[in-house]
């Protein structure tokens, strides 16, 4: 699971007031570099919840020291993407698309319910008594 996927996942456990964004407990991560596609990132930014993305990056950074990944700005004006420079786009790309949570958990910030991530696939299925 990449942080792009994380950005739109929400906990729907019964009784959750605010199940977004999910906290990340990482067991295994991997980093796979891919070519940067600027239009794709620019197209994506207005749809991205940047604050959630930033906090996810902060949670993963300590686990990624071996890859010496870049830092990203704490805030970006996603309504005006034209002024964002290439370097920043590269950094966003790295964290959105090149870092994978292979094993671990996504944790509902409200109820603490843990959603397992296995082989990069987050399992968001609820049990019957949670619906």
């Amino acid at each position: 699971m990449r942080l792009l996927t994380h950005n739109f996942l929400k906990s729907n456990v019964k009784g959750t007031e605010n199940g977004y964004p999910l906290n990340i407990e990482a067991t295994t991560l991997k980093y796979e570099e891919s070519p940067v596609n600027k239009p794709f990132i620019l197209n994506l930014l207005p749809k991205l919840n940047y604050a959630a993305f930033y906090s996810a990056v902060q949670q993963l950074s300590p686990h990624c020291t071996e890859y010496s990944l870049p830092e990203i700005p704490s805030d970006i004006d996603t309504s005006n993407v034209d002024v964002i420079d290439e370097e920043t786009i590269g950094k966003l790309h790295t964290w959105l698309l090149d870092v994978y949570l292979v094993e671990g958990f996504l944790v509902c910030p409200d109820t603490g319910r843990k959603f397992p991530v296995k082989d990069c696939i987050p399992n968001m299925i609820l049990h019957e008594d949670e619906i």
């Binding site: 792009l4 996942l9 794709f40 399992n123 968001m124």
Partner: peptide
Amino acid sequence: QQEFISHQCD
């Protein structure tokens, strides 16, 4: 792969 986003859910 960046365009194809998948996850397991109901």
